[in-house]
Simulated assay, not measured.
Amino acid sequence: MNQRARIAMPDDEVTALLEGARKLQLATINPDGTPHLVTMFYGLDGKGRITFWTYAKSQKARNLARDRRVSCLIEAGEEYAELRGVLIYGEAVRLDDPMEVGMAVARRTTPGVADDLLRPYVEQTGRKRFAYAVEPGKVVSWDHRRLT
């Protein structure tokens, strides 16, 4: 077995990393073809897909209107021997209701805060945001802890 196969995570560990993290690096494609890379808070929908929201006038929203392809990187670990990550190549699909995604993101970024306290903020900021779900294509994972 090659090293790449040795460090790949099984599906349940990929799911656990996605469920446990709060931030991802999101890459969209600028008009000139260069990557536009940002850190985003995210949620997960009932299908286990990554969801996020962003201001409608943001660069990423403009990029996604033109080209839906994205890359999402979720990683953990500080030292080389601890590094774990999931890289998802897919397409961002715009959703009709930003409130649901906004609430999912808000819950993950402010654990323990009641929905009735989160909802006014999400409603206020949601008026200017688009929500997306990432339809995964290729998923690549690694866990360097498997090397020992």
Rank of each mutant, 00 (worst) to 15 (best):
M9P: 00
L95D: 07
Y121M: 14
R129M: 03
N2T: 12
D32I: 04
G85W: 07
A8G: 08
V113M: 14
Y42H: 02
N2F: 08
R49C: 14
P31M: 01
R69F: 03
R146D: 00
R69W: 05
R22V: 15
T34K: 01
T34I: 10
Y55K: 12
L83N: 02
L17E: 06
A106G: 08
V134Y: 12
I88Q: 04
L37E: 03
P111E: 02
K138W: 09
A61W: 00
A27L: 06
A56Q: 03
E13H: 11
M99Q: 12
A61Q: 02
M40K: 07
S71Y: 02
R62P: 00
P120E: 10
V113K: 14
F41W: 13
P98S: 07
R145E: 06
R146W: 04
P31V: 00
F130Y: 14
Y132C: 11
G85R: 09
A81H: 13
D116K: 14
Q59K: 14
G20F: 05
A61C: 05
R145T: 14
V70I: 04
M99G: 01
F130D: 15
V14R: 14
P120N: 04
D97A: 09
M40Q: 15
M103T: 01
A27M: 05
A16R: 13
F130C: 14
T54Q: 06
N63D: 15
G112C: 05
L24V: 12
T51P: 10
R69Y: 08
K138E: 07
V134I: 14
E82S: 11
R146M: 05
T54R: 05
R107F: 08
T34H: 06
V122C: 13
M9A: 04
V113R: 13
V14H: 13
R4P: 09
T15G: 01
R6I: 09
T51A: 12
G77R: 07
R49M: 08
D32S: 11
L17C: 10
I7L: 07
V86Q: 04
A114N: 06
G43L: 15
P120T: 03
C72P: 07
D96M: 11
M103N: 01
D115W: 05
V134G: 02
I74F: 09
I74H: 09
E79L: 14
L95W: 01
V101S: 00
I50V: 15
D67L: 05
R84N: 02
R145D: 04
Y80S: 05
E13F: 08
P136L: 13
M103A: 01
G20W: 00
I88S: 07
D12C: 07
R49K: 09
C72T: 13
D97N: 15
R84S: 00
Y80K: 07
A131E: 14
V70T: 08
